[in-house]
Design a protein around this nucleic acid. Sequence first.
DNA 1: TGGTGTGAATACTTTCACAGCC
DNA 2: GGCTGTGAAAGTATTCACACCA
Lengths: 238, 238
Amino acid sequence: MRNGAVPDVVIRRLPLYLRTLRQLRREGQQAVSSEELARFLGTTAAQIRRDFSYFGRFGKQGYGYDIETLIRELEAVLNLDRTWDVALVGYGNLGQAIAHYRGFEPNGFRIAAIFAKSPEHIGQVVNGLVVLPETEIERVVRELAIRIGILAVPAEAAQEVADKLIAGGVRALLNYAPVTLHVPPGVVVRDIDPIGALQSMTYYLEPQEPRPSADGTPAPDGLNLAAVAAEAKRQASR
Amino acid sequence: MRNGAVPDVVIRRLPLYLRTLRQLRREGQQAVSSEELARFLGTTAAQIRRDFSYFGRFGKQGYGYDIETLIRELEAVLNLDRTWDVALVGYGNLGQAIAHYRGFEPNGFRIAAIFAKSPEHIGQVVNGLVVLPETEIERVVRELAIRIGILAVPAEAAQEVADKLIAGGVRALLNYAPVTLHVPPGVVVRDIDPIGALQSMTYYLEPQEPRPSADGTPAPDGLNLAAVAAEAKRQASR
DNA sequence: TGGTGTGAATACTTTCACAGCC
DNA sequence: GGCTGTGAAAGTATTCACACCA
């Protein structure tokens, strides 16, 4: 983000360290060296040591880092030693998938309010939450002191919804809409952009034409996909 | 990615330019200056000019960039002047959401094969595609000459699935699983990591305690969320 | 011995600022 | 007059390499 002492690149890497450390803890490991951690993450040991050094001296020479301690330190740095309430806006395909995603709670995030535009969605109950109308965003977000919003609305609606969330006090936005949000200073945005990710990867691919098989054939190359599936299922259920 | 002439940071920005340019085209705009484009994107004009300059001289002094031309140039750079077939692996909540997402096709990506592990999913038909067993990944991907894979499987399965895709010829992976994939040189990976994004944003938030309201009350602050929803719905349907 | 933490060197990225062109 | 494309400068990030320590 803005110019604090610690570069944002570093901050973005901390969750990866945390994830890997928790994994190692799950496997019963006690300590880890920057070298070993780097292998897991596909980075360098120097980078990891430098990254940690922004926040303190967490390691012991000749030993490495105590995993339990390091996890707690990183959680403290990232303010993850508490649970954060989140407001989800949008209850279409994507919004519903997010609402049902079980990965937030174990990571310290809890969807505390859901907003939708369509009357068909408003009033539905999900995980004990009532889907509220988007007109209520500002009020409810303020009342519940929610600081984090997830935008799962169509591109056209994203900026307006972001404005409402921010008006209610939200300071961090996870944006799934394919638009660049404009936010005042003090508000962080992270974009989730699968299409952009795909489009940047194709740069590195050989631009060979898609195979010249005549269009219209659903299963080129003599591969009968339905048959493949049926046969495999038969085998599996044996 | 690796050391080519053009930095990967630049490549990652191109899809954003493309998206914005298409938006402007939709609105009927003919030309755009680096300055104006920068305002839309929250960057600087200098950066945009530098980025484009890696690939050619697309602008006209005193005029700016012809939007139509620039779009075509960027599409060519990113190899987006064709349609790319994609293999989707995983058909749980997330995989199904991805399979039904309507945003791929208009952007030049087409899900051409879907794989799942669970027998309950295998054989289902989605958009005219039969969900295939993961055992068939390598063969089918090779037969269909698919270069791009989307991983929507649990963390534990991700590396193994990635290996199979790569064995079949995939060279680009969009990874939704919360793990660091290890891939040979020549394979690009982009991670979609909402949890990591949230965890890095909380660094910037005030670490204030969640409001001290006694636990257990589903609607603190006298806000009756169900009532809010019901009332709003009543008003909307009037 | 085996590892950290960190100055110093290197590599990469962004920004400035202006000549040059339409 | 207005805006591009780009050398050169400034600013960031990564890596090296080693003093130091358990």
